[in-house]
């Protein structure tokens, strides 16, 4: 009987998952439990936790920007991979197309760079 080559990946996944879940559950059981209200509060360097809700607070817009940039370039990578794998098949035509594609992304990249989208401060 031959298994699909993907099955072992799932197998390893399952083993790892079993181990991790077991550990997490075991920690619940093995560890002691001594109630202390302060212990259950969020850690804030020993001062009283601020009332500001974490999810509702704002965090820097740069994180979003990074995420968006990531998406853009990840998409570029999606297209680069198949092209790279069959590079020899595609030849000059593929090369020219890809140059155009990369140049286009580069234009956006240059814009983001110049407008300070890549500066983190």
């Amino acid at each position: 009987m031959s298994l699909s080559p993907y099955v072992p990946i799932i197998g390893l996944f399952a083993v790892a998952a079993a181990f991790a879940l077991f550990s997490v559950a075991a920690a619940r059981l093995a560890g002691p439990r001594r109630y202390n209200r302060a212990k259950l509060d969020a850690y804030e360097c020993g001062i009283e936790p601020s009332p500001e809700p974490v999810g509702g607070g704002r965090f820097p817009i740069k994180f979003y920007l990074t995420a968006m940039l990531f998406i853009v370039f990840d998409i570029e990578i999606i297209f680069l991979y198949p092209w790279a794998v069959s590079f020899d098949l595609l030849g000059g035509f593929g090369f020219v197309e890809m140059v155009l594609f990369i140049v286009t992304v580069f234009i956006a990249y240059a814009y983001v760079w110049r407008r300070g989208g890549l500066d983190w401060d």
Binding site: S23, A26, A27, R28, A30, G31, P32, R33, L40, D41
Partner: peptide, 9 residues
């Protein structure tokens, strides 16, 4: 493993 497993409120 034998440390307390804390679940913050």
């Amino acid at each position: 493993a034998f440390k307390e497993d804390i679940l913050p409120t």
